[in-house]
C-alpha cells in the first residue's frame, strides 16, 4: 500500500513536469531554441499570484494567464532575431533573459520567499483505505492528461498545428512552401505560456513560496527531462519530463529519511546513466541513417 501511495504521488509530480517539458519541447521544435527562461514564466506568474492574494479566483486565473502568455510573447520577440544563430548563442541569450527577469524580481521583491495561494482547497486530502490522497494530486493528473491530449489534438487536427509540425520538421522548407513561420512560432510560445500557467497553478499547493529562483529550478529539471527523453520529437520530450518528475518523487519516497538530502545526486546519477546508454534519448527511436 505504501508503494501505491508513492506511485500516485509520483504520477502527479510527473504530470506537472510533463506540462513544463511540453512547453519547452514545443518551442524547441519550432525554433531549435532551448528556452532557459521558460521557468521565469512560472516565476512571474507566481509573483502575480502573490500580488493578488485575496482577490477573486475568477479575476486571478485569467490575469495570471494573461501575464504569462504576454511574457511568453515578449520573449518570442526578443529571440526572433536569433533564429538562425548558433545553438550556444541562443542558449546564452535565453539565460540572459532569465537572469534579467530574476534580477528584476529580486530588485522588486527581494530574494526572500513570498507566499502565494490559490485554490487552497486543493491541499486538503481524503483517505481511501490506507491511501491519503490530496485533491491536488488528482487534479494534477487530470489537468495534465487533458492538456497533453488537447495539445496532441491541436497539433494533429488543426491547420496551424499541422503547420507547426511541418516547421518543427524542417523550418526552411516549410517557410519556402509558404508556411507562415512567424505565426507558427508565436502560437508555440503562446501555447507554452498556457501550459506554464496550468503548471504554476498546480505547483502552488506543493510549493507555496515564490522566490526569484522559483521557476529556474523547475525549468532546469524539466529541461533535463526533455533532453533525457529525446528533444527531437514532442512525445518523447514530454515523456522525459514526466519521467524526471516521477523519478524525483519516487526516489525521494524510497530513500531512507537520513539520505534524502542526496536526492539530487541519485537523480543526476540516473540522468548520466541514461544519457550514456541512450544518448539519442530514452524514448527516441533509433536514429535513422543519416541521409547525405
Amino acid at each position: 500500500m505504501r508503494y501505491v501511495q508513492y506511485f500516485i504521488d509520483a504520477v502527479a509530480l510527473g504530470s506537472l513536469y510533463s506540462l513544463v517539458a511540453l512547453g519547452i519541447g514545443l518551442i524547441f521544435g519550432v525554433m531549435r531554441l532551448i528556452n532557459l527562461a521558460q521557468g521565469e514564466l512560472l516565476m512571474v506568474g507566481g509573483y502575480t499570484l502573490f500580488a493578488t492574494n485575496g482577490w477573486s479566483v475568477f479575476v486571478r486565473v485569467p490575469l495570471v494567464l494573461l501575464v504569462i502568455v504576454g511574457l511568453a510573447l515578449l520573449m518570442e520577440r526578443a529571440f526572433r532575431r536569433l533564429r538562425s544563430a548558433a545553438p550556444a548563442t541562443m542558449l546564452v541569450m535565453t539565460f540572459a533573459v532569465s537572469f534579467l527577469l530574476r534580477s528584476i524580481a529580486q530588485k522588486r521583491w527581494s530574494a526572500q520567499g513570498k507566499s502565494m495561494n490559490i485554490f487552497s482547497g486543493l491541499s486538503h486530502a481524503f483517505t481511501v483505505g490506507q491511501l491519503r490522497i490530496r485533491y491536488v494530486t488528482l487534479v494534477s493528473i487530470a489537468v495534465g492528461g487533458v492538456l497533453l491530449l488537447g495539445v496532441n489534438l491541436f497539433l494533429n487536427r488543426t491547420d496551424i498545428g499541422l503547420q507547426m509540425r511541418a516547421v518543427a520538421s524542417d523550418r526552411r522548407i516549410a517557410q519556402a512552401l509558404g508556411v507562415r513561420t512567424n505565426r507558427v512560432v508565436v502560437t508555440a510560445f503562446a501555447l507554452s505560456g498556457v501550459l506554464a500557467t496550468a503548471a504554476l497553478l498546480l505547483f502552488v499547493p506543493q510549493r507555496p513560496t515564490v522566490t526569484p529562483d522559483f521557476g529556474l529550478q523547475i525549468a532546469i529539471v524539466a529541461l533535463i527531462g526533455v533532453v533525457v527523453g529525446g528533444m527531437d520529437r514532442l512525445a518523447p520530450a514530454t515523456f522525459g519530463g514526466f519521467s524526471i518528475g516521477f523519478a524525483n518523487s519516487m526516489v525521494f519516497s524510497l530513500l531512507p529519511t537520513g539520505q534524502r538530502v542526496f536526492l539530487d545526486s541519485v537523480l543526476y546519477g540516473l540522468v548520466i546513466i541514461v544519457l550514456l546508454l541512450r544518448p539519442q534519448g530514452l524514448f527516441q527511436r533509433e536514429r535513422q541513417t543519416t541521409r547525405v
Binding site: L162, R165, A166, S169, I173, A174, L177, G178, V179
Partner: peptide, 27 residues
Amino acid sequence: VRTFQHGHAFPGLTARENIEVAALGTG
C-alpha cells in the same frame, strides 16, 4: 515552386500531411 534533389519531405509528417501543409501554406 521547386522540388529538392533529396526530396526533403517533412520526416515526422505522414505523406498526406506533407501535401496538405503545402496547400495550407498557400492559403
